[in-house]
Design a protein around this nucleic acid. Structure first.
Lengths: 111, 111
DNA sequence: ATAATAGTACAATGGTTATTGTACTGTCAA
DNA sequence: TTGACAGTACAATAACCATTGTACTATTAT
């Protein structure tokens, strides 16, 4: 049988569902901050490209946290899944926040 | 007997002890974000001026978290204690972070 | 001295969360 | 069909944390 929809679909928060507390809490974890850093500097990524960051179960968990906080979105192309930062939205809601954060993260001693 | 020192002295982190993770974690709590907001907009404050934010024990706890994260410092003048943001240090280490954050917090629907 | 004020220390509790192991679904290549 | 790959769901555990209650210290005012 045919399935026109992507294999799995999730809930993504709208603008009014996103809070500064949720965003900050999502960003306050080293693993998630690293994911955000790579998405910010490298653009779209597939989840399996983050396998060196942590285990796949934990990766799935952290991606869920980032998604529910409103920080990332996903695009399905064929059978592949591409993650990306919701940069315009976050920059519009919290101007300077991501920029300042990424500047600080890039200046960290060890990548 | 005389006591030349302030009644209580604490450890305050130096620049090399301050991490982006600690700062973000400290800022990801609504209570602490409110304290930081008031310190940023109103300048120096005495702890008892925050009694309307939460209980004094909890206030003491959150101020400790903010202090150990490197976000605030204290000045003793006579018997009074004045809290303030370590604004120059944070702005130097994480440019744009506090500014973007405070912009977002000030834009929140309810203060 | 006594009471009031400002602040902290400590224990307890309930809730959250990061991590791991196991198991499952769906897709692709052989 | 079989196996490998990509990803998720769920349970369990351990750690962390926000909050509150009780008790304590130190200082000031009466």
């Amino acid at each position: 049988m045919t399935n026109e929809q992507p294999a799995r679909t999730y809930w993504f928060p709208e603008r009014e569902d996103i809070t500064i507390y949720g965003v900050l809490a999502a960003l306050s974890d080293p693993t998630r901050l690293e994911l955000v850093r790579q998405l910010a500097t490298g653009g779209e990524r597939c989840p399996y490209e983050f396998c060196d960051v942590t285990s796949k179960q934990n990766l799935s968990h952290h991606l869920k946290v980032l998604r529910e906080a409103g920080l990332i979105t996903a695009r399905y192309e064929g059978r592949k899944k591409y993650l990306s930062l919701r940069r315009e939205l976050i920059d519009d809601m919290f101007p300077g926040l991501l920029a300042g954060l990424l500047t600080a993260v890039e200046a960290l001693p060890q990548t």
